[in-house]
Write a protein that binds this DNA or RNA. Sequence first.
RNA 1: GUCUCGUUAGCUCAGCUGGUAGAGCACGUCACUUUUAAUGAUGUGGCCGAUGGUUCGAAUCCAUCACGGGACACCA
Length: 506
Amino acid sequence: MPFSNKYIQLRIEKANQLKELGYNPYSNHSQRNTTISKYINVNSDVEHLENKRDEKRNYTLSGRIKFFRVMGKASFLKIEDESGMLQVYVSRDNLPEGFYNDVFKKLIEVGDIIEVSGYPFVTNQGELSLHVDTLKLLTKAISPLPEKFHGVTDKEIRYRQRYLDLIMDSEVRKTFQTRSKIISLTRRFFEDKGFLEVETPMMHPIAGGANAKPFVTHHNALGIDRYLRIAPELYLKRLIVGGFEAVFEINRNFRNEGMDATHNPEFTSIEFYWAYKTYKDLIEITKEYFKYLFDHLNLPTLLPYGQMEVDFADFKEIPLITSLFEIGGVPQDIVNDKEKILEFLRANKLEAKPAMSLGQLQGVLFDEFVEEKLINPTFITDYPVDISPLARRNDEHPEITERFELFIAGREIANAFSELNDPVDQLSRFEGQMSAKDAGDDEAHEMDVDFVNALSYGMAPTAGQGIGMDRLVMLLTNEHSIRDVLLFPAMKPIHGEVKENHEEEK
RNA sequence: GUCUCGUUAGCUCAGCUGGUAGAGCACGUCACUUUUAAUGAUGUGGCCGAUGGUUCGAAUCCAUCACGGGACACCA
């Protein structure tokens, strides 16, 4: 039952009284002529003036009331707009007869959005403020705000009612402003390099481009199922076949998997594909990209992340196999021996599946012993071919691929490789994935015949890369949960919020 | 999915080994014309997440469920 709360009832009553007195509690006539941060900048000289005020200046500002201090016939409020917070001084004798006592004190309160006009002055305590001569309610808030000192700390409320979180915490607003800047800088970086931004389908007939479980939806007109995309990769490569030489897409992917501090069912990535380049060129452009972000975000090269400090002047490059013994401390003589790896895993009380290939086992060793130790940016290169179904083989060493993943602060940030463009090899790798699927791997890659067909027309040698934007934003804003960099993270519906949709278990 | 912690007033939180619900902020009333989480006085405000059980008696103990946090698993 909405609005049954007694505090809300009281506030609705106040809104009604305002209406009766001829004041619209939801006025649409804003006369604002500057923002709070501009006001503070422009009037920074006022503290040096005689009487610390300039009555000839006049400004009209708007904002939400965050603090309301009444002291008899005078009051101090703090109002906040997107740009900042400002103290305003309101006194009985500067307002129309009766307004201060009957309207201002009784019917306006914390949470309401008001508009004030007046001149700048500095208080005895030295704070630049606005001396109000006109005050008007723009929007009545009928729900009370949370406690002014602690704000909202309950994460459930913060995520479910993000608007409240944003009202109460300017740091949260700042995180999302930084996120927006990162996306915008990324777009500009690649555009400046001559990349073309494209939009490829979000609904796929075949969920390809990654190994993940898709969300399924249904297209009524065609009577067929569609999959929300798990990656845009195969469509972007079709564009390279078509003759575009540098394309990128920043958009959402959807994966039907668990949720935790680094996984949300929908997440944002950039993927970019660059013809006539190799993964070596991608390493260079990635370093350049990070430098570009750091320069434009004014971030320190030694970036704190939780207890860690990440040195962005120290990009390293190391082959996966080498990292196993040099960083992971795995005995060097076992890393190319399937049986010895299995033995080593068992000795370390880790799951050892004999069905796994050598490459898969090397991947397991990497995940267990190396990944979390990669604090400074590290390009791990030369991935085994059997865990890289879409990457190009190395010409000299066909069992490894021309691929890297970038790790920072113990976490994967990017995945890149020289693209496989041999249509016959691609077909057989898809077939390999199909047998894995038949053997029970429900995340093996789907066969995409049209993609193989596209490759058969010839795709120029190309390098491609994906970067998880949410995790990148986490890194650059020192946030440790993906929910804190998503405005509206996925949450379970609270009971009764959504009609139960009984799905049949597969 | 597993383990674990949590859920008490609009918000932030107390509430011991079971005895009938507390504070601060907010809100109402009063005082106060330079405050800084303003202050002082006073008052209103609760299905103690839901359902069952144990008990003379449950916010408190037990069980199940719901939602959330954290960890693990899964997820390149």
